[in-house]
Design a protein around this nucleic acid. Structure first.
Length: 216
DNA sequence: TAATCCTACGGGAACTGTAT
DNA sequence: ATACAGTTCCCGTAGGATTA
């Protein structure tokens, strides 16, 4: 079956450290590249989710995230102090944010909703990124990201206060990159319940955003 | 087909007004 | 003060439509 083939195919890579894999890629092993990209696919998905939860275009953001991943693989230097994973996370995040910024730039952004910044508002739609919503601040560059991290932590606490138990759990797993089905199995609920919980979470976050924007 | 959105429904808790 | 009916809000659920 498919599965077996895949397993065999990756056998030799499974025991390798990311850093070794990178080296292989740099030496021209395209299979190592495939493996790495596959391995980090869910990671990218999880990262991207923060940005499309509130309605951004999921596929586009994931694409950007994958580009960031690719760049990370391409540019990672072994002698760096950071692990590849940390480096990749940075690259992916930066790529996504840059893409969103580009998409939203020169877009008339209503004063009351810069929150939508992270959200790629490709068009007339009013979308906001979860992260933006949560952060409530525009992210101008990586440095600001770090600065905003503190605010983010605060706000995160407040937001989770708004959510019910189920909603909180579902959100956590969702942001973890899990699918509806995986979440439903984990929590022993119908997929429908997951969907509903997510819907409520989104609505709450949107509402929270509005209030927040208003008071800032 | 899976993910997502929209709308409506039912149960329960909290609140309110009122009659006793 | 107590009891009770009516109202409102929140949570979870469900069906169906839409989107990717």
């Amino acid at each position: 079956m498919n599965l077996n083939i895949e397993v065999k195919h990756n056998e030799k890579y499974e025991i390798m450290e990311d850093e070794q894999l990178i080296e292989s890629v740099h030496n021209g092993e395209s299979e190592a590249l495939d493996y790495l990209i596959h391995k980090y696919r869910n990671f990218v998905r999880a990262k991207a989710r923060s940005y499309f939860l509130i309605g951004a275009d999921k596929e586009d953001i994931i694409q950007e995230g994958m580009i960031g991943l690719y760049k990370a693989i391409r540019d990672y230097k072994e002698d760096k102090l950071t692990s590849f994973k940390a480096f990749a996370e940075l690259c992916i995040t930066r790529q996504i944010i840059t893409a969103i910024k580009t998409a939203t730039r020169q877009k008339h952004i209503p004063l009351n909703s810069y929150v939508s910044l992270d959200k790629p508002i490709y068009d007339e739609e009013s979308d906001r990124t979860l992260m933006d919503v949560i952060t409530g601040a525009k992210i101008l560059n990586p440095e600001e990201l770090i600065i905003n991290r503190e605010k983010y932590d605060n706000i995160e606490g407040k937001i989770t206060e708004l959510l019910s138990d189920l909603e909180r759990k579902v959100l956590a797993l969702y942001l973890d990159g899990q699918s509806y089905q995986e979440i439903s199995e984990e929590l022993n609920r119908h997929v429908k319940s997951i969907d509903n919980a997510l819907q409520r979470v989104k609505r709450k976050l949107e509402r929270y955003l509005e209030v927040r924007e208003f008071s800032m």
